[in-house]
């Protein structure tokens, strides 16, 4: 029985072993670069939110055994705290949306948001990445929760976020992620 099984499937077993080793070897080689790409993207977005000369200080989660997981980011300029930033994830229309949100040091205003990952509908939901929608979050007050409205002026800086036409769910999802993220950031930092 076992002999027949081995006779039939030795190639499958051997190939699984060789291919598995090959893939893990390549992953081992490329992993540092893949991680570096993700960090560079976050660093680029943080510089855009806090300014080119801001010094970014990632605060590591003390409970993480690897000592790698970042709890939040603190931005400083010449010894002064400019603000804090956090990666936040939430459900979008098609897939999870991963955002980076930044608030000022006093937790009074949002510095802005950046979309790190989203798979929203092209032409509609993916407009959450456009400056026209994203720009509404710059300097928004964070004392009260942000709300989504269907009409209004996007250039007015207040707690009302004008949704994208045809993408109400994506717009609501971003606002919910930002509201939840700000609360979480406030709890962690204070």
């Amino acid at each position: 029985m076992i002999v027949k099984f081995l006779k039939d499937s030795w190639l499958v077993l051997l190939a699984a072993l060789v291919f598995g080793l090959g893939v893990s070897g390549i992953y081992g080689q490329l992993k540092p670069r893949i991680e570096q790409n993700a960090q560079l993207k976050i660093a680029r977005e943080l510089k855009e939110l806090f300014g080119e000369d801001a010094m970014i200080d990632p605060k590591i989660d003390p409970e993480d055994s690897d000592g790698k997981r970042v709890l939040y980011y603190q931005a400083n300029r010449s010894g002064q705290t400019l603000g804090y930033a956090l990666e936040a994830v939430g459900g979008g229309f098609a897939d999870n949306i991963r955002l980076l949100l930044a608030v000022d040091a006093e937790f009074e205003k949002l510095k802005g948001i950046a979309v790190l990952k989203s798979n929203e509908t092209p032409g509609f939901g993916d407009k959450i990445k456009d400056a026209e929608f994203k720009g509404q979050f710059g300097d928004c007050p964070v004392g009260q929760k942000l709300i989504v409205t269907k009409s209004g002026e996007r250039s007015v800086v207040d707690e009302k976020i004008v949704s994208i036409t045809g993408a109400t769910i994506s717009s609501q999802a971003v606002v919910d992620i930002v509201n939840g993220g700000v609360e979480r950031l406030r709890e962690i930092v204070k």
Partner: peptide
């Protein structure tokens, strides 16, 4: 998987 990893890296 190799193609996916290469794309993620480069």
């Amino acid at each position: 998987t190799i193609a996916d990893l290469l794309l993620q890296a480069y």
